[in-house]
Amino acid sequence: MSALSDQLVTFAILAYLVAMISHAVEYALGDARRRTAAAAPARELVGAGVGATGEVEPPAADDAPPVRDRVAERGRLAGRIAVAVTALAAALHLGALVTRGVAADRMPWGNMYEFVLTVTWIGVAAWLAVLVKRPGLRQLGLFLTLVQVLLLAFAELKLYTEVVPLVPALNSYWFIIHVSTIVFSSGIFLLGVVPAVAFLMRNGYEQGRRSFPYTLAKRLPAAAALERLTFGLHAFSFPIFTFAVIAGAIWAEAAWGRAWGWDPKETWAFISWVVYAGYLHARATPSVRRNVATWIAVLGFLTVLMNLFGVNFFFTGLHSYAGI
């Protein structure tokens, strides 16, 4: 069972890679078409915040030659294939998690390897859910699949651990409550950083920047839609993360004899929480520009990553179950 899980992970990574390439093809073909369609000004969707969606199919160029149309059609097809392959990858990924859990006879969150596997799956599942509601955001898939490939390959190469049962300290229903919510909120934060970065690039592009990272944003959905998605994901995830931290404290009281002891993981959870609270405040403050607020969200994700990887590698603490 455990070997099957490992194979499924490998296939899932390959599938994400294919999806990423497919997204890139759509991107490139779209670019080709765009060059002919007279640089149409980006449609502003900021208006009043009501009914704004992410639908930004680029305006069809009426006067474009039929060849270009075929290219565009092929681009859209590539995009659709990319989404289908992403869904397939997510299914394989889920299979890997389930088989791993069956092999270990417990939830597959016992060490860092399994943890990353689950967080990335949550990220991609939430992405597919977002796509159902906002198909126009499809191009973001390029970034998401890139993140998936990087994280999963890293997990596979650097973090891989054999299946073992839980140590007694983890053997508690709090394990499921605390870890599932941490994994879930981390997965949403992971997804949230994709539109956040995309917004930062797109926003620069819309403000007329034409230097390197901003030019990548040419085909991205409108900045306002990206910003809105960024906020939505973070607002959704933050209370769950808060709950997870509280549940962790309740568990720590029972397991370690104190609710909060500034163990490195606890410290970084605190830091992440404060940074995300800072993001929500910044976004609610009109005098703080949206791109500044979004940078804070990106920073928040860096602190989450730090907690996921850095703390396990650099510090020792009570959360030393990572199995590396």
């Binding site: 500034w262 410290t267 830091i271 404060v274 800072g278 405040h281 910044a282 703080v288 703390v311 603490g317």
Partner: peptide
């Protein structure tokens, strides 16, 4: 003001970092 609150929140996060990097007596 909200701006100050933001600055203080940010400072709080930064100030917590040495607590994880350096060993702590209480831990």
């Amino acid at each position: 003001s909200m701006r100050t609150a933001l600055m203080l929140l940010f400072l709080l996060a930064v100030a917590a970092i040495p607590g994880s990097v350096l060993p702590q007596r209480g831990v």
